[in-house]
Design a protein around this nucleic acid. Structure first.
Lengths: 264, 264
DNA sequence: TTGAGTTGGTTCATTATTTGAACCGATGGT
DNA sequence: ACCATCGGTTCAAATAATGAACCAACTCAA
């Protein structure tokens, strides 16, 4: 492993739970010698990637990221990042993948990717508005949204798009609890007939959900094998996208490391 | 110079104007051997700090910055604090307010607020780099910076962005003395034509300036009444922000309690 | 078509940097 | 007063960085 890689690795140990790290801790975390870590932190500090707080004692992430993040966003806008993730999720599941963004109290599907693998596929309208209670994407967002937001949504009239749409607030709250536990939402024909979809929430820098990434397949094609694959891939894609966009899942969010533990 | 520093230096060559850089270009820009640059870019890429677009050909900034910027923000919530102060300064003066941060020897405009009150207004680019000698923000920082820092800046080439830019070191030192006495810097068309700006320095816990808060208005709109209001408000906002961020002005800094005593 | 001048990328002997055990003085808790 | 740990430093030994020369692929002009 090169020196640069080792130095950059140090930056990965900072987290929301551990924003300040001391020299010795950093040496332990990285498994490197204290003198080595000291020199590396010195170089990172000189470049502004890390800074010391107070009189030595602790290091934290430096001020350069504002600028670099702004430049990155300018070079690669959000839609490009989302598009790439959608494409790979689509390739992986060979079903329609789409991304939706919460705008006020409306969930808007802003991007999608189709798989050429099957003759039949779920199709999306551009800028289609998804109901929060009737789609997997909506349920994924609701399951992690603030209580007052959920309350407002469930108190409002809940239109049934199909005869399978759940419109009973009590029933919906039970479902949201289940989604919250699994980290992924599932909806069978709740929005369009014969569409079976899964969705994972996307979180912002404050751990609040602001959108969802989803995979939608025809009900007829959804067997146990495909379902497992879709759930695993969607959960992973959601986590990945959250991280790419600089967001953080809340502490309660289930890790996708053990997808077999997820119950349906 | 350490290897890590050299590698990180590569990142500074990316800019809004040049978001994509090839291997050979990067070698030229950095003055390092092509093989060295190649290996460094490889390591930066593996860590996500840089990524290749298409089939080789070009490199651009990688996806890690969104996440790191969010973590930085979480650890040091500058943005929120600065944003609020900018907004109220903007409301008070009804002109564009902006905040810049000293990163090494570069002053970077990291946040701004626009007033909807006038049809014409001064606009800002994200992550715009401000010259230290040609902007009010830069002069505000320089006026309180360490002597060796000022020396280094004034010895380096001083580009003239406009025909009004002061580039004579002697003249600049005289101006800095005046800024130091008033606690506020003023620049008329020194960076952009027809922009009249005022700036106050922001100090850290050691009494060192690390940024500035400024108000920029079209030259045509700057009359005596607006100027007085801007000076008073900018000075107050600077003091306020310094305090909010846990900093202290040096003992020589003029108190804003008697704004009528300030000479221009 | 050819050839000169690019490009990104690779090789490997030479060189210079990185490494880490041992060592500071300072700090903090018992 | 003690002991553990802190951040930071030293220097011989070990290791990784370096760069001139070299590809193959591509672009452009003659």
């Amino acid at each position: 492993m090169g020196t640069v890689t080792k130095a950059l690795q140090l930056l990965t140990f900072f987290s929301r739970a551990q924003p300040l790290i001391g020299l010795s801790d950093m040496a332990r975390l990285s498994g490197m010698n204290k003198a080595t870590v000291h020199r590396m932190l010195g170089e990172l500090q000189a470049a502004g990637f890390v800074e010391q707080v107070g009189t030595g004692r602790h290091y934290r992430l430096g001020p350069v990221y504002m600028r670099l993040a702004a430049l990155r966003e300018h070079a690669v806008p959000l839609r490009d990042v989302v598009g790439a993730v959608l494409q790979s999720l689509c390739d992986e599941t060979q079903e329609t993948a789409h991304f939706s963004l919460l705008q006020g109290t409306q969930l808007v599907a802003t991007a999608h990717a189709y798989s050429p693998h099957h003759g039949t596929r779920v199709t999306m309208e551009d800028a289609q508005i998804l109901t929060l209670h009737g789609t997997s994407s909506g349920l994924a967002v609701l399951a992690y949204a603030r209580a007052d937001f959920v309350h407002a949504v469930l108190e409002a009239p809940l239109p049934a798009r199909t005869q399978h749409t759940i419109t009973n607030p009590k029933e919906l709250r039970a479902k949201l609890a289940q989604v919250h536990q699994n980290g992924i939402a599932e909806s069978i024909s709740g929005f369009e007939e014969d569409v079976h979809s899964h969705a994972a929430p996307i979180f912002d820098a404050h751990g609040q959900p602001f959108g969802a990434i989803a995979v939608a397949a025809p009900v007829a094609r959804m067997d146990q094998r495909l379902r497992q694959n879709v759930r695993r891939a969607t959960l992973a894609a959601g986590m990945h996208l959250t991280r790419l966009l600089g967001g953080f899942p809340p502490d309660t969010y289930p890790t996708p490391l053990n997808p077999t533990e997820i119950h349906g």
